[in-house]
Design a protein around this nucleic acid. Structure first.
Lengths: 225, 225
DNA sequence: TAGATTGTTAATCGATTAACAATC
DNA sequence: TAGATTGTTAATCGATTAACAATC
């Protein structure tokens, strides 16, 4: 289909906004809103309407000039573009605190990422059930991933074993990795990795807090020369 | 001090990279590396050396022309710039799965964000200890935050109570919010918010996975007209 | 029609990269 | 000195915003 081809050379900044559009539109849909203009939608997301239209323009044909967007049409189109029009089978490797917290998060399944496997090397955790999924031994990683057609692997193991887990997931056909371990991963070109850096987020926040304090303390931006 | 004033009008993109620099430099320091050139450091982070120097240039004076950077000097300077040269007292509100997982994460304290309070409205959780901190009733939020001088509040409550928690944290003197609830927060100008959107990350990853599949299937970028 | 809206291109803005003088 | 390095400015690149014709 034409859209799935063209839609792939899209700026990173636009890709990041697509889920925000979808999230907001689903909210509107839930409260019965049928039509929405680029101005309304953009305002509720704190961006410019022209940016939203520019983003949509990469995919094209969501409405016609003069007519506002239909919420249902946008939701369907964005789900298809993002790839959550069909469920995306997901597995979690590492059932420590964070892995268990993610497994317990109902939002993931609701947004299109059903959990189809949880794995941990620790025998004490194996068999424990989370939301209907028993924690499995790491030995079962490859066969289960293949059988369930896992597309996205969530890595919540310690940094020391993250690369090994990544390699095994990729060898079992997984093409998307959500990496929560504080280490870089080497993967083949056809695999996408997203590195979630928790402490980086805290530090970026800390920087802004510190700047806010400096400003409150009455220090003028041009006071220093 | 001069640096703390000038350093605040810095592009968002640069702010996001500062923690990555610090992280890598601490790693180098741990294995005994004393000097590092912009080229070496940049290569290990997959960015251009000129970008790194350009970033550093906002703060200025980390080395002198001709001399490589001293790891220890950079670590100290970046810690100060980011604001983690002194501990940043942090509290978690919402001791569900995610809140507990974050409370258990030792990395936070190591990176300069010691946990000084955990709160939850659920009486069944109250008193449970995590890493030496007892989960407290929500009633204690304001007094504890004031007493401990909490600077950063981590919001891991359901979306429905996130705004209320945010308002209370701000009223108790907290100026940085790490929001894990899937909802926007309204806060005064002097407060910084960072919204961690988990499902947004999954969807951005899904988009790339889908594009990778399309490419693998042999579809040419220009095949569609 | 008049007012509002989208799709689309052009203008602006900001971030990244290259270049190079000064220095070691 | 020759080679390597930083600090700093200029050039390039890409993303955001504005503008407006076409449409309803």
């Amino acid at each position: 289909m034409e859209r799935s081809i063209r839609s792939c050379d899209v700026p990173e900044a636009t890709i990041q906004r697509l889920p925000l559009y979808l999230e907001k539109l689903k909210l509107l849909q839930a409260i019965g809103v049928e039509d929405v203009s680029s101005r309304q939608l953009a305002e509720s997301l704190d961006i410019k309407a022209s940016q939203l239209r520019h983003d949509f323009h990469y995919f094209g044909g969501f409405s016609r000039p003069g007519r506002p967007y239909r919420v249902a049409v946008l939701v369907t189109a964005l789900e298809q573009i993002i790839g959550v029009d069909h469920p995306v089978p997901t597995a979690i490797v590492g059932a420590g605190h964070l892995g268990q917290a993610l497994a317990n998060y109902a939002g993931l399944e609701l947004q299109g990422f059903p959990l189809r496997g949880i794995f941990d090397a620790n025998p004490k955790l194996q068999g424990l059930e989370i939301r209907g999924q028993a924690i499995r031994d790491l030995d079962e990683l490859e066969p289960v991933c293949r059988r369930e057609g896992i597309k996205i692997g969530v890595i919540t193991v310690p940094a020391s074993s993250a690369q090994d887990v990544a390699t095994r997931l990729v060898s079992a056909g997984v093409t998307g990795l959500m990496n929560f371990a504080p280490t870089e991963l080497k993967v083949p070109d056809h695999v996408s990795v997203r590195h979630e850096r928790l402490t980086v987020g805290f530090m970026a926040l800390s920087f802004k807090v510190k700047c806010g304090e400096a400003r409150l303390a009455g220090e003028e931006p041009d006071a220093a020369v």
